[in-house]
């Protein structure tokens, strides 16, 4: 199909996925702002996008840049990684009663690149080739970052889970 779909269709098909990626990358509190900036920039550039482009990879690429902008303008990472905060982060999961042990906060404490690679691979379902083009480096390095991130998530979750309690 070489016809260009109405932009409305892109929002319908990819809006939820892009929001999930934004949540994983900048945290739930700022995800919606980044989503808006992403789709606004996408709408502006859409007429120039080749009709056969991978639209989800294109949208995630824009979301990647917008999330970096958002984190820079706030002068901080979405959630501190140096230390596990004693008090709940103000940027934690709103209204979820997040006790700092949930999967989201584990994802948030991963090094930036691992967190992004995991989001782009497992929430947006992008290939490592596409992910490498977005985050830089080689596809093999992206694959390693995903694998290291998963390993790290696994050990954090095991450590935080009392025996016998199921997730």
């Amino acid at each position: 199909m070489d016809m260009k779909q109405p932009f409305e269709k892109l929002v319908e098909l990819h809006g939820a996925t892009v929001l999930r990626v934004c949540r994983a990358v900048v945290g739930p509190a700022e995800a919606e702002d980044v989503w808006q900036e992403t789709f606004l920039a996408a709408l502006r550039a859409y007429p120039e996008l080749p009709p056969d482009a991978n639209k989800e990879a294109w949208l995630v690429t824009i979301a990647h840049r917008k999330s970096i902008d958002a984190m820079r303008s706030n002068g901080r990472r979405p959630v501190p990684i140096e230390a596990v905060p004693e008090t709940p982060s103000p940027h934690g999961v709103p209204g979820s009663g997040d006790d700092g042990c949930g999967l989201w906060s584990s994802v948030a404490r991963l090094p930036d690149k691992q967190r992004r690679v995991i989001a782009y691979r497992y929430l947006a379902d992008l290939a490592f080739n596409d992910i490498a083009a977005i985050v830089g480096g080689t596809p093999a390095a992206a694959r390693r970052a995903a694998s290291d991130g998963l390993k790290s998530l696994r050990s954090r979750l095991v450590a935080s889970q009392p025996e016998g309690e199921s997730a």
């Binding site: 809006g15 999930r20 949540r23 994983a24 808006q36 789709f39 999967l103 199921s166 997730a167």
Partner: peptide
């Protein structure tokens, strides 16, 4: 579910990342 087997599927099941209410998307 066995926590030592955390993998892609488990991430895809993390409700705070995955659940997108239609109202939220409608508002966006």
């Amino acid at each position: 579910m066995n926590n030592t087997e955390l993998g892609p599927v488990d991430i895809a099941l993390a409700p705070e990342l995955i659940t997108v209410e239609p109202e939220v998307l409608g508002r966006l």
